[in-house]
Design a protein around this nucleic acid. Structure first.
Length: 555
RNA sequence: UGGGGUGUCGCCAAGGGGUAAGGCACGGGUCUUUGACUCCCGUAUUCGUAGGUUCAAAUCCUGCCACCCCAGCCA
């Protein structure tokens, strides 16, 4: 698994060399979520890059809530964000910060800029500022940019003291009104906002803009590499401008990478919220949601998600990874680690006619053929079993080698049986399958060594437990519902959830916890639902199906 | 038509003058007490495109094309 280094690590390698920007320094990154929503799998990529890079270089990574806008942020998300990050296995130790921790210092830096003649108080309304912004060929206008320093100082103080109405004044950096990069056309770095802040309450009524705040946060924390997504590329000149014009010891470097897209998935907060509000899903943790809490509830493991991001690599190309790759990563992980169990999703009776009516046997079954240390468990066997309706065909199609009259099949870890026929109801539906077992095949091996092509799973009617099973599938029917010009709500997959109320599962599943992952033999990977499942009413979610090379209808 | 980016297989992605890694997906085979897993084999004469430099170009040069981001007192 010796993946070659991606461009960010190549840059860091260079900077760490003698004479490089970071020679002799410890690599220090940060993950700076805005506490205004739940983390999703796209954030997990950034997490992998931020924490993973620190780990790779023996450095450290801070967790920092980027809470510079009181109108959008809320404390309620902070704990959920921390929980999700811990669940993924990342650790910030004691380095948990808020951007709001630095409001005092940011204010001082703003004053410093004013004193240097590099910032001024502007009295343009938002509308006026928009009108005067100019365009690609016309420079912006800024009538207040030559205001005396003393006056700006005074006004800025008034802004801080709440003497100015919201929207009436801003503090702007004096940079370049003619820049082709609009972020440099004297950007607003402080605005007035009278909403109480979730942490600082009413202490402030002016708040720094991201472009001013972020580089300061990074510099103050001694961040060496500020890794962010591509849309901030245009902001880097401003980031550098701030870092170079205020009195800070260290100068962090911003490097941008492409964010992740996944087929048949939407990742934008607005669209995800819409899915909830329109009732397409039940909430942020619905197992069909790409949120970390949704994936967790679905049965995804942190290991699978992290491996997914590691294998995808990091570049600057906007990419949309196939959902199949995420599924592959989950199967890879769970095949190694999940215990097997037998569950019949579409139960149909199987009667072993030559087996004694009241006899019960106990068979020992391996928990995981991929991992002997996973041990074994016991399952009971009797004359009356449940098997899956799909494992019987009265008239088999070509290449079908499961149960049909006259054919032999092995019941996993039990006996070889031969199908003798079936019972039907008045409508012609098969309601029971009959078979006779080979008394010499206990455990599943034939005495004469004849090979049995198919092995099917089963559960004993005497000990089987009822369970509800939720089969989840992709929420969308098209590959890229997240494109700007498609109405994603027109492409909802109506069958993204299929509920099976009357499944029969083996007794050992009775105590399944939501952290346990199982492979239901020949079906897929499942976990108990972390909200709705209980020993009295088992509910299992399908995380991902097993691959299946059988193509029905192949006449 | 300003500025900033990106273009290598269906999807990711290495490779930065010496003759196209790898993974997923897909197809075929093998193995199998899971039609899973394993293992094997196959899959870009070609690197957005047109020229140029060179013995040699995906890699260097020039032009062109396509796509993404930017005109919030959002992050």
């Amino acid at each position: 698994m010796a993946e070659s280094k991606h461009f960010i690590h190549e840059i860091i390698d260079e900077e760490l060399k003698e004479g490089g920007r970071c020679y002799g320094k410890k690599v220090h990154t940060r993950f700076p979520p805005e506490p205004n929503g739940y983390l999703h799998i796209g954030h997990a990529k950034a997490l992998e890059i931020d924490f993973g890079t620190a780990e790779l270089y023996g450095g450290i990574c801070n967790l920092r809530m980027d809470d510079t806008n009181p109108t959008k942020e809320d404390e309620e998300f902070v704990d959920a964000i921390k929980e999700d990050i811990h669940w993924l296995g990342h650790d910030w130790e004691d380095r948990f910060y808020y951007a709001s921790d630095y409001f005092d210092k940011m204010y001082e830096f703003a004053v410093e800029l004013i004193k240097k003649g590099l910032a001024y108080v502007c009295e343009l309304t938002p509308e006026q500022m928009k009108e005067m912004r100019g365009d690609t060929s016309t420079p912006a206008q800024s009538p207040y940019r030559d205001r005396p320093i003393e006056e700006s100082l005074e006004l800025f103080e008034k802004m801080k003291n709440g003497e100015i109405e919201e929207g009436k004044m801003t503090l702007r950096a004096k940079i370049d009104l003619a820049s082709g990069n609009f972020n440099m056309r004297d950007p607003v770095i402080y605005r007035i906002n009278r909403l109480p802040h979730h942490r600082t309450g009413n202490k402030w009524c002016i708040y720094p803009m991201y472009d001013f705040a972020h580089p300061i946060e990074d510099a103050l924390e001694g961040i060496t590499h500020s890794l962010c997504s591509l849309e901030f590329e245009n902001h880097r000149p401003l980031y550098d401008w701030v870092v170079n014009n205020i009195s800070v010891e260290t100068k962090p470097r911003q490097i941008e990478f492409a964010r992740l897209g996944i087929t048949r998935t939407v990742l934008s907060k607005r669209k995800l919220r819409n899915l909830i509000e329109n009732g397409y899903v039940t909430g942020w943790d619905d197992p069909r949601m790409p949120t970390l809490c949704g994936l967790r509830r679905r049965g995804y493991t942190p290991e699978a998600i992290r491996e997914f991001h590691r294998q995808n690599g990091v570049s600057k190309v906007n990419s949309v990874v196939e959902y199949a790759f995420l599924e592959y990563c989950l199967r890879e992980d769970l095949n190694r680690r999940a215990n097997r169990a037998m569950a019949v999703l579409h139960p149909i009776r199987l009667i072993i006619d030559n087996y004694p009516d009241d006899k019960t046997e106990v068979f020992t079954v391996e928990n995981n053929p991929e991992d002997e240390s996973a041990g074994t468990r016991e399952v009971t066997f009797s004359k009356n079993l449940w098997i899956d309706a799909e494992d019987f065909m009265e008239v088999p199609e070509k290449k079908y080698f499961r149960l049909f009259p006259g054919n032999e099949v092995r019941l996993k870890s039990a006996y070889v049986i031969k199908c003798t026929g079936c019972d039907k109801d008045e409508n012609g539906n098969v309601i029971a399958v009959h078979a006779e077992y080979d008394t010499e095949s206990r455990g599943g091996n034939t005495a004469d060594g004849r090979r049995i092509k198919a092995t099917i799973h089963w559960v004993d009617q005497n000990t089987a437990v009822d369970a509800e099973i939720r089969l989840y599938d992709q929420l969308f029917t098209i590959d890229e519902p997240d494109l700007a010009d498609v109405n994603y709500l027109d492409f909802i997959n109506k069958d993204s959830l299929v509920v099976i109320k009357d499944a029969k599962v083996e007794a050992s599943l009775k105590n399944a916890g939501s952290d346990d992952r199982y492979q239901f033999l020949r079906v897929g990977y499942f976990c108990a639902d972390n909200k709705d499942s209980s020993p009295e009413h088992l509910v299992f979610n399908r995380a991902v199906s097993l691959k299946d090379s059988y193509k029905p209808g192949n006449n």
